[in-house]
């Protein structure tokens, strides 16, 4: 074969074109996966709250809308939204009577009872959820 530049270029192209991958050892994947074990344990123990942040934001927004609607558009009829404007001033007095509320649902369907019960319940629920979330996220700190 003549050693012209053309021949050498062609031979080099052939060599580069037909090169092949080096084969990784047969147990390569197993070794990689076994090297991941410490990190896999972390993934498994990650805590995810039952109710997501988005859901809580949605609940909060809905409650705010409800609250605003009740105050901006007071109704003359006896409905769920019919909240007296001096509600806030009477809130403390009402909250004192929470313990005196009977568990008869039909007797208690009154706005003056619903608001002092529902809103503090939601707030307590949110605080409780955030508290659990914080404790679970930092449980290594609490365990030590």
């Amino acid at each position: 074969m003549e050693l012209s530049d053309e021949n050498i270029t062609r031979k080099l192209d052939e060599l580069l074109k037909h090169q092949d991958y080096e084969k990784a050892p047969a147990d390569f994947s197993d070794k990689v996966l076994s090297g991941l074990h410490p990190y896999l344990a972390d993934v498994k123990s990650q805590y995810t709250p039952l109710i997501s942040k988005k859901a809580w934001i949605l609940v909060g927004v809905l409650l705010m809308i409800l609250f605003i609607l009740a105050y901006v558009f007071p109704s003359n009829t006896e409905t769920w939204f019919d909240i007296p404007l001096d509600y806030l001033s009477g809130l403390i007095e009402n909250s004192k009577s929470i313990f005196e509320i009977s568990f008869n649902l039909f007797n208690n369907l009154d706005t003056s009872f619903l608001f002092p019960v529902i809103i503090p319940s939601f707030i307590l629920l949110i605080i409780f959820d955030r508290l659990i979330h914080f404790v679970m996220k930092n449980r290594s700190f609490f365990l030590i």
Partner: peptide
Amino acid sequence: LVDKYKDMVFT
């Protein structure tokens, strides 16, 4: 993904 790319990564 390891199986897919292991040969190229090794090479």
